[in-house]
Simulated scan of single mutants.
Amino acid sequence: MFSYRHAFHAGNHADVLKHTVLIATLDHLLEKEAALTVVDTHAGAGLYRLDGDYAGTSGEAAEGILRLLAPKPAAAVTPPAQVATKKIAKSVDAALAPALQRYLDVVRAFNPNGGARVYPGSPFITQHLLREHDKLKLFELHPTDSRTLSANIAQLEAGRQIAVLHEDGFGSATKFLPPPSRRALVLMDPSYEIKSDYARVLDFTAEALKRFATGTYAIWYPIIPRPEAHDLPRRLKTMATKAGKSWLHATLTVKSSKLLTTDSGETKRPGLPASGMFLINPPYTLKALLQPALEQTKDLLAQDRHAAFSLDSGG
């Protein structure tokens, strides 16, 4: 149950998708003055060293965030529209869409000396953007990651703004819904290392919607050759539609999912080829913001001719 460690995958293409969507969603929700509560059901360790043993073993960041941060040809530079931010120093990359530029600026804020030695997970990205009167509830059941998360969060000296709970997020996160301000974003990002995670996402989302129908719910999932993975977004769409809620579904594919054949004749899986983000009650501005960002991300992170993206919405 506890074999999965996100440190091996930090900064990969799935993180690029997840955190680009997360930041764009938070930016919109934080435009209103009323307090926002963010609930992260599977928070992980919070911060990751890309030059450490875990990330170095997998090398996945090299095909994700590190590729995006690679120097661009000077002749290609065309300044994009600037996106206002209070907490992040701006930079200008080669003709990047605002949502993708914003994501890179957030990552750079954790690496003031350049490069990307440190990759911020969802807890630190969220805290970086929140205001003093907002709240962050972090759930992590993995014993090692929970201890690391608590130690990392303690360095922020954020006081009562952040709560770290060594609990099953699917089992107890709904206790914070609805929050006093009636404004919340719930992020669900389980490992899916066991098939029951897919069903638990659906059960948790259904219960959360009953408790707090106007909250924004964001679910990341892997797109892999498993029936549950392909069934999850369809069932979430049905759930949102029956509840009369709007939804948005974004996917990013960087390579083929077909089995690879080695020189010795053995077959092996190619690693995670694609992932998706499904949102219920998304910001109305999100689809237009993500369209050019995902198109660029697909081109920049493509590993073969099967690279693609999709973006659908309804409600």
Rank of each mutant, 00 (worst) to 15 (best):
V118H: 10
K242V: 05
Y4S: 06
L129R: 09
L272F: 05
S310V: 00
R67F: 07
G169N: 09
V38K: 11
A308N: 14
S122K: 06
A43G: 09
S58A: 13
P227Q: 01
P98Q: 12
A24K: 08
E266R: 15
S310W: 00
H19F: 01
D299A: 15
I153D: 06
A45Y: 01
D203L: 15
Y221R: 00
V254Y: 05
L289E: 15
A45G: 08
R5Y: 05
H42S: 03
K86L: 15
A199G: 13
K287H: 08
R108L: 15
L136Q: 11
G56E: 05
V107R: 06
A199Q: 14
E157M: 09
T41P: 07
A274W: 02
F110K: 06
A24M: 07
L209I: 09
D27L: 11
S146H: 09
R117Q: 12
P180M: 08
L138A: 10
Y284W: 09
L290D: 04
L286F: 07
T144L: 15
E167R: 14
F124Q: 09
R235D: 10
G114C: 11
G114Q: 13
W247E: 00
Q127I: 03
P79V: 13
V106N: 10
L236R: 06
T25M: 08
V254N: 08
A81P: 09
A81I: 11
K195N: 11
L69K: 12
R183G: 03
A293S: 12
L177F: 10
Y192I: 01
T267L: 14
R49G: 05
A62K: 14
I162L: 07
D168F: 03
F176R: 10
F124H: 08
S313D: 11
V16Q: 07
E207A: 11
F309N: 10
A154C: 00
A10M: 09
K245I: 05
G244K: 04
G171I: 01
P73R: 11
L252D: 06
